[in-house]
Every structure is written in C-alpha cells, then in structure tokens.
Design a protein around this nucleic acid. Structure first.
Lengths: 352, 352
DNA sequence: CTGAAAGCGCTAACAC
DNA sequence: GTGTTAGCGCTTTCAG
C-alpha cells in the first residue's frame, strides 16, 4: 500500500507538503505541486480513509437512514437515495446506508463512532422515535419529511398542504363541485406520517373556500381494495365528477376500473394524481399531476447538511429550519370540465 | 468524546484490556470484563471508527455499487440494497452506497483508500466496464448478475434460464402450444444485461423440446407500447393462448388491455410473469409467477463477501464461483388449460 | 490473565 | 513556500 510518506520521498518533498497539495489548504508553488501530483499518479496513491478520519476527525461520510416501512412507495425512496448519493459525491462525501432494523440507536452508533459526519433521515413520522437522539446530537442532521414538532430541527419536504390546495383549485376551476380523494393505506395515516394528512388538510381548506364537497377515503395497495373504494365512493356520492389520488400503487387499477365501469377519463370523471412524473406519464391516459420532487428533496437535504459542515460553519445548535418545496401541478389529459358544465363559460360558482 | 484510554482509567485497567474486552480476542476474567463493560456503559463510549480502521486496516464497511440505468426496475434494486444493508449489519458491517455517476473508478477510490473492505456490484452487464478493476483488486467482490465471462469472479443471480424453462413447462403442461413472450425494453437487450437473454434462451430451449412455438417481443415501459406489442402478437400469431411476461412496468397495462379486448385470463389466455411476488399478487388477477428473489440475492452476496473477509480466509484470488438461485414457479389464478383443451384429463405431456 | 508500548497514515500546528 | 513533529484513538505484538 502506497503511503503519503512514500509519495513525499518519491517527489523529494516533505509529508506535509503532499498533504497540503491534496487539501489545498496552503499555497504551493506550481513546480512542487506538479512534482507531487506526478508522484501520486505514478505510484497510484490513494489517501487512507481511516488515517485521514482519525487525524482530521472528519470521515467525509454522511449517513442516510431509511426505515423500511412496507407501505412506503419504494421508487420514491430509491430516487431520494440516489439523489443523496449523487449530490454527496459532488461535495466529496460518501453515503452510508442505514436501514431501520437497528432502531434509533443506529443514530448513536454511527455518529458516536465518528463513522459519519452528519445524517439525513427519511420517512419521518409525526412523533418519530429518532428525534430525541437527533436533537441531542451535535452533528448536523436533516429530516426528509415533517414531524409534528419541528423545533430545533432542519427539515425538507414537499409542501403537501399547498399540493392539496392546487389540486382542488384546478378541479374547481374546471367546474367540479363534488370531489373524491383516494388516499394512502390506512396504516399510513395511523402511523401519522405527516405528508398524507397535510395533503388532505390542504384539500379540505381550499374546498371549503371554493364551496366544493370532498369525500376522503384511504385505500390499500391492491386492485381489490381500489375496486371497493371506488364503488363506495360512487355509492355515497353519485355526483362525484373528479378524483384526487395520492397512492401510486393503485393508480393503474383505478384507471382500469373506471374504464370497465364505462366512466371515461376525463369526459365523465377527471383524475389528478400526486405522484412521480414517470408514473403520471406512463398510464393509459397521461395524468394531470403534482410531481413528487424526489431528486430535489434528496439534493436539498445534502446541501443543507453540507452548509453546516463547512469548516467555518457556526457550531451552535442548528435552530429551526423548514424548507417546503413548492408543488407544481402539470395539466395533462386526465382532467377536463365537469360533466354537464359547458366547456366554455364554465361558471366558477357552479351553483344550480 | 470518550476514548478507550478514558474507559481504561475509569475501569482501572490498561488500554489493551479494554480493547480485548471489545474484540474478544483474548480471554478476560469475568470480574475485569464486567468492570470494563460497566465503564463503557457509564461513560457512553463508542470506539472511534477511523482509529479502528487505521490500526486494524479494516473499515468494516462494504461498498454497494449500483449504477442507475433508467430502465432498471427500481423496487428490485431497492430490495436488494435493503437486503445487503440488513445482512451486513448482522455481520457487524455497514454499507456504503455508490451510484454509477463516478464511473468504474469509484471502485478504485473506495477500495484503494481502504474505505471499504469489499464490494458488491449490482446491475452487471455482459461486458461490464468495472470487471477489469474488480479482477485486479485483491479485495473480495461479488457481482449480482452474470457477465459474459465469469472467470475469476464471484457471482450471484437468479437462474433465469431455468426460469424460462419452468414457465414453458408449466404452460406446455396445460396444453399450450403457441406462446408469446413479452420481454424487457429493447435497450435492456442491447445493453446486454444478461438476465433478459438468459430467460429467453431457457424459454426457447424448453419450447423446442416440448414442441411449443414461441414469439418473443421486447416492450418499452409504457401503456401504449404494451398495446402495440399485444396487437402485433395477436396479428402475427392469432393462435396464441399464453403469454410469458418479464417486464414489471407493463404487467398492469397488459391485464387491462386483455380485458378490454375481451380476452379473459385465464380462460382465453394464460399469463405467467417473471416479477417480484408483490407485483404478482396485487394485480386484478393473481398471477402465476416466478419470483425475483431480491432479498435472497442481496443476502447471499453479503454472505459470500463475509466468507472471504474472515480473518482465517485464504488470501488467494477468489477463483471462479457462480451461484444461481433456483427459481420457483408459483401457480396462481392466471394460468389454466389452453382454450380447446378439456379441463380435466389435461395430459401432462401435452402430446396429442 | 493483564500491561506496556510501538506503530497504523494522516493533519495541522509550529517553525523557518 | 516548505519542513518538522506531535498527536488522532485504536490494535497488537512482546513481556510478564
């Protein structure tokens, strides 16, 4: 194994010079720098990570903790993980992947051992058991998702309340007055993973403002439960002309079922989805949707972490910082004027 | 930060004793051990990862490299990653997540710096550019997937050829004589990611043996392309009575389209899928399928790595070792006797 | 069964 | 602009 000392000897300089060439923390003459860089290349030198971590007390690793709740939509998790790893590398850091099975103590182990300089927590619950440990850590930490109490925490998430509002506004603008919302599995609400609740709150708020009726029904991930949910919706509210769906697993089944029932999208029923772009565009009808900006979420989380990791960063407790990414509703082929409402002159009040 | 020296002082023993209590590499009297363990607990001691790595030249980290080709099915990747992380922790190791963007050099960086003790490579192509580096490394490495030349490599994968054979055997046993195979996107075949080719080879082999005709068509991930593929299949081979599908993204659309066309599953057309269990069971018709054992693949990969990481392991080059997991075909509701074949007395050999 | 002490390879003062 | 050197915290001989 090639060491820094060997490089130094080969280049005819001292160890510290090699170190400084590597870190750029002091000015080096062009001549020396070149000699050193040449030696590094010729010898195939790679700085030893352990030694570096020990001497600098920085591992250049950030931990990404993702519990594996079975009802989470994996592709989104995956995309966030990829974004985190990619962005971290741009900042010369690596990513350590922690799963939930160790429990909250993984936090302590990884940070306590200096294995990671900071951490990013995914799939945060409203009352997350990891939060006490995060609050007492002096290491930078960023949550992806919003807990009930964000005090003293740094959080990144999509603005789901605004997402809900935009969905309703869009539909109301098309004349819809009776809307159903197909939500995540009941377990997601019970666990109180904030995002699902925040969406429905936003939906209800805007609906109240615009005089729209809303029926909210959670739905499991299977074809059958979608069938059941759908028939209950039309039983209870035969006048339903639009559906907002926030549950990736059942989007395909829903469209398939609507077609079977002879309900045309968007002529008879409009559909707005809250889901990744890819899911929205790959259906039989391209869906009007609000995208889940998974990549941006992971990216921002890393950037926030890196800010607090800068050498000159304040060491004070982080303070409270919440960053809600603005949702964007993209109109595609699945939404249109409410049945019975003339295409033009669609009255905004829809009153009869 | 609490150090081993502080623990030693607190417990009234020497540093080496504390170290040995931790590692169990020498026998310690019960009394001393307890005192040390107590001190560790009271002081909240966590061994410093960097120091440990430096002194022992073992980081206890294994790198997991997953290129992010856009056409891969993310949930399977994710499940493998989770399996790797989980299994690694059971062996007191952590997992470093590497994405493809750095190119093959990431291998060199991570292993050369001693950041990782070993690596697991996912999504291996037939002529993978990472292989030369893997072969020259002295660190243990395991591939998930099979390259064209497995010489001197350790590989784990599902036995896709046998998977293909089992699908055909099952259908032939039900009397089907005209089978279509809907495969992955053309790009997957062009990249020559072995698994897709191996499946169709197995399909063709068994089909030849049993006198079954096979039509193979790749298919992109969208609803439209599935529609196109399906109509081409029935145009070219109107007598098709069964479909094997190996493309998670279009399974839902396929079932939906068949229903629209008035083809009942399994009465008019039988469907066998190669996909994760969850996908097979959540469709409108529970699918007869061969599961992708993602978790097992990740798990075996870690175990193989750990074998070669044992202190007493031979340091010789690994040699060639390929482990193909046996496929299991589970019969569900989507396959039945070929149309025109009597339900009972369906001859197992299918001969007429 | 336990201690003492020599590094592991690098960083970052401190000198000049 | 460069060199010298004292650790960083742990593992592991070597002694007893």
């Amino acid at each position: 194994m090639v060491t820094l000392a060997e490089v130094a000897r080969h280049a005819g300089v001292s160890a510290s010079t090699v170190s400084y060439v590597l870190s750029g923390k002091r000015t080096i003459s062009a001549r020396t720098r070149e000699r050193v860089e040449r030696s590094i290349r010729e010898l195939g030198y790679h700085p030893n990570a352990g030694a570096r971590a020990l001497a600098s007390s920085r591992s250049n690793i950030i931990a990404l903790m993702m519990p594996l709740r079975t009802d989470m939509y994996l592709p989104v998790m995956m995309e966030i993980a990829i974004a985190v790893a990619t962005t971290a590398r741009e900042h010369a850091h690596d990513v350590l992947l922690l799963t939930g099975q160790e429990g909250p103590e993984a936090t302590r182990r990884v940070v306590g051992s200096g294995l990671a300089d900071a951490m990013i927590l995914m799939d945060v619950e409203l009352e997350d058991e990891r939060l006490p440990l995060v609050r007492e850590t002096r290491r930078p930490a960023v949550l992806i998702g919003l807990p009930a109490d964000t005090g003293e925490l740094t959080c990144v998430d999509l603005d789901f309340a605004e997402t809900g509002r935009q969905c309703v506004s869009h539909l109301a603008g098309l004349g819809h007055r009776e809307i159903a919302m197909v939500g995540e599995a009941a377990a997601v609400y019970e666990r109180r993973t904030g995002f699902a609740e925040r969406t429905i709150l936003g939906v209800r708020e805007r609906a109240a403002e615009l005089g729209v009726r809303v029926l909210h029904r959670p739905c499991e991930g299977s074809y059958e439960s979608m069938a059941g949910t759908l028939s209950r919706i039309f039983d209870e509210r035969p006048g339903t002309t639009a559906i907002i769906v926030q549950n990736e697993a059942v989007i395909g089944p829903m469209l398939s079922l609507l077609r079977q029932q002879g309900r045309a999208v968007p002529e008879d029923i409009s559909v707005v989805a809250v889901c990744p772009e890819q899911v929205a565009t790959q259906q039989s009808v391209a869906l009007t949707s609000v995208a889940i900006p998974a990549f941006e979420m992971g990216q921002r989380a890393v950037e926030l972490v890196m800010d607090r990791l800068r050498p000159d960063a304040v060491l004070a407790p982080a303070g409270t910082h919440t960053e809600l990414l603005p949702p964007t509703l993209t109109v595609r082929a699945s939404t249109g004027p409410a049945a019975g409402v003339p295409v033009s002159h669609a009255p905004a009040n829809g009153a009869r």
